[in-house]
Amino acid sequence: MTAALMLELRDLSKSFELHHQHGARLNVLRGIDLRLHAGECVVLSGPSGAGKSTLLRVIYANYRPSFGAVHVRHDERWIDLAKATPHEVLEVRRRTLAYVSQFLRVIPRVPALDIVAEPLLQMGVDEPEARRRAGDLLRRLNVPERLWALPPSTFSGGEQQRVNIARGLIARRPILLLDEPTASLDVENRNVVAQLLAEARADGSAVLGIFHDEDMRDRVATRLFPMQALEAA
């Protein structure tokens, strides 16, 4: 049996029009076609400036595509995020699509444990269960228990990144978008992340990510998707 198709990009393009820079136009993506299946981990490769992060953000609907389609399997139907209403996008993000960026966007005064548990609460898991699972995941990622009750704004870069990964992976959404989630982690913690990704894939999640570290890339990737910077238009 072939694995289910989860995400399909068709002829996707993205340019930025900068109205206050004399109408300058930056073409970042052109004609991207990509198919991602359950259980796969596709790693975007290419030099910086090739549009890898932009592509992930377009898929997450954080950026609006200029042209083309972002088809996502949501429950058992397909939704084109390029055309979806904001409410539909929010629903897809809540249950289907997770995005882990390099940096944790810190919410003032919210403890690390609650930040990690939040996606589960949004999916309807009850609070004690959500907090227990958040604790288990933070423990696996070697975030010391004495930090759980504190807001992560005072944590080290590596600790914040692990909180961010925990928040992104806890709800086991079927599609994971990862933008350099291991950039400031030590070897031990990279191993934990590689292990978590293997578990997510075995569970049927489809992963699309950026990993600059070659060792990490070789460990997690089932396939590479090469990208190149566009010539200036």
Binding site: F16, E17, L18, H19, H20, R57, A61, N62, Y63, R64, P86, V89, L90
Partner: peptide
Amino acid sequence: TGLTDQILDDPQHPYTQLLVS
């Protein structure tokens, strides 16, 4: 009008671009 993160990270209208920048 739209998703807050989209408006702030990829503003389309000249006025929104000015506000965000």
